[in-house]
Design a protein around this nucleic acid. Structure first.
Lengths: 222, 222, 222, 222
DNA sequence: GATGAATGAGGTTTCATTCAT
DNA sequence: GATGAATGAAACCTCATTCAT
């Protein structure tokens, strides 16, 4: 029994029921162990959530950071941001969505840490938009609201996307890149750039097999 | 002590802490009454949430429905939808946001009822987008994703908007109407239409004084 | 169900098993109520102990303080101290002994408060001994050690005294007054003074009937 | 890692926190080993306490027994008892005090064994007092109470004595011998006898270096 | 001899809810 | 309409102890 298995089981439960409504016994039951065994690996229930949220947010921030820095023109950088963000939320909906919905269940230092991570992450998009506006590539009435809107709509993918759904991930990523460009007042994104970043993102964010064996189609209420 | 006061206190708590993390004693304490007294007005805790969510969603569905039906051209109807949606989430963030975040805490018939309401509500936007696309006023790669994106970005306003913030509600509504039109591939919205619907929405959604006496600036984590 | 009944049941258990070894369920079981009901009256388990210890120590400090101030000559004041101390520990062995044995189970402010009470109490004897030594009525090699010795031997009464034992309380009080006077290097105490204070002490410290209905002969290990 | 080190660490913890409040993990932590390793040396937690209490009480009973038998006159025998008792409680406060405070945490045969040891030990003093009274050297109103008083006041030394305190051990021993003689109604003890027994006691009871490396001044609540 | 992992048992506490007053 | 008291259910977490390695 590894920390990874506990994390994965907890992510499923937290995503579907919420942190507060999930009991440690349920997580343990999903893994056929006893609740006390959880505490051999995690100090308390909140620590599991913190581990999930902070590691996922770090993964995303690192991935997007590298991708954005690898591009030079604003349009490609916006594409990089959106594709990575959408891909993570589609490939790891459980972990990724928790950073939005369950943040309030963290307290004290753990909450502060996650908020700092999130702020650093959103700063990446802020800079992309600012640079694009300065370069005349983007036309933004209000860069702050555009950022809020782009993040909100891309994050939402984690709620509805299903691997066996009508659209596959490459289509979803392309559509969201296009919509984000529209919001930013930019010309449509280059399909080649979308494809390049999608390959990177899929490699990076696809969960390893040992991390998750539960039902893939248990979903949150939508 | 009225149901309204209990609703308002509960909305505050549910919004900030979440339904599961809120205790009946806390709600009662905010009103300087005892927990048992709550049960004179509500059968159980879930009923308070259901009351909040269903009445708010009904309010929104009715308001948007009327507004959309009052307009004939697709652009004005999209404007009507966005302005109403944004206004409700800005003016009643507590109640409005619960329909997204706390839906999973409802069970059985109550959940089904709210989901039916929400589906009816989103159908309004689906029709607006479909009509606009058919009329050639909107250019949509994927009408479903566009709908998801517009709803997600507009709902997000409830999380960050503050009455004393940098932008007042009319500016916010105008910016979101513009961004939604961009997502829809439409020409910018008519400011007159925005203003007209904003006046309607403010009249309809501004909470009555007796409904809320708590701190206006207690906010969820953002 | 009153706080008093919970206190009495807890005192029994704490005295016999110790605070840490006593469960809230046991206390509740002794009273034929459920554990949760205890929390209607006490915030937590420690609060019951604090209530017991601090109220008993206050009772003793007040009683001894008045008695000592009512006397003028050092011998009578020493008698007053010993008779009150012995009587309380004989009549309320459970509560009185907890102040010695279970103090370490209190934490933070509650511990500080009890220690302050105890220090104030022991200061009474310190002054009695100092005055007697200054007046030449007592002959003390070391007033501090004499005080420790007198308190320790009198407190010990709470461990072994039984109402149905070989000696009745008046005999025990007289013997301890005599021994304390010997330790202090004083002439034997006046029997009339012993009797007077014993009557006062019995009136003051005898538990009210409603406070305790449990077995009178359950005792700590000796 | 020896049984002795575990015993010493446990004695510290039991003395300060009590047996029930001490966890096996804490003891192991103090020794930089894991809890499971404790079970190579002791069958269970209670066995550590039993080992501590019974060995210390045996040490005391043997030492006092020899010392008392080595003297012939009652005063010297009382001196021997008090000096040994005080010295042990001053030199090994942790172990010695446990015999009083933590006895109730032992169960069954282990408890019976320790009580038998203690009764045998107190019988030594009972005989000393009885012989002295018969010889007219002691004047005792009640030999049982005198015994209780002497044991209680001498045992108390373990609670407050510190090696670096105001009084050194020889002074403390002399004062308690004098007070015990007063309680017994005897003439003051012979300083030479006090000194002789103190040397014996110090040799016998001073802990070996390897037994204890913890902080010498961590004390119980007083 | 040491320990990482696991766990049965149980501890304290919380909480939604009921009900007599 | 309000509430003090009570409680069943269950939550989180602790801990002594076992055992395979």
């Amino acid at each position: 029994m590894t920390r990874g298995a506990i994390r994965a089981a907890a992510a499923d439960r937290f995503f579907v029921q919420g942190f507060e409504a999930t009991t440690v016994r349920e997580i343990a039951g999903d893994l056929d162990i006893r609740a006390a065994s959880i505490y051999h690996h995690y100090a308390d229930k909140q620590q599991i959530l913190y581990d999930l949220v902070s590691s996922t947010m770090t993964l995303l921030e690192t991935g997007v950071g590298e991708a954005v820095r690898a591009e030079t023109d604003p349009s490609s950088r916006l594409t990089a941001f959106v594709v990575h963000h959408v891909a993570l939320h589609a490939l790891r909906p459980r972990e990724a969505t928790l950073g939005e919905t369950e943040l309030r269940s963290l307290a004290g230092e753990r909450r502060d840490g996650v908020i700092a991570l999130r702020d650093a992450y959103e700063a990446l998009l802020r800079d992309v938009l600012a640079d694009g506006a300065a370069a005349g590539v983007f036309v933004l009435d209000d860069p702050v609201l555009a950022r809020f809107a782009i993040v909100a709509m891309c994050t939402n993918v984690g709620i509805w996307y299903r691997p066996d759904g009508r659209l596959d991930l490459s289509e979803v990523a392309a559509r969201y890149a296009a919509m984000a460009h529209r919001v930013a007042g930019a010309a449509p994104p280059d399909p080649a750039v979308i494809g390049r970043h999608l390959r990177l993102a899929v490699t990076r964010y696809t969960p390893h097999e040992e991390e998750h064996h539960g039902p893939a189609n248990t979903r949150a209420v939508r």
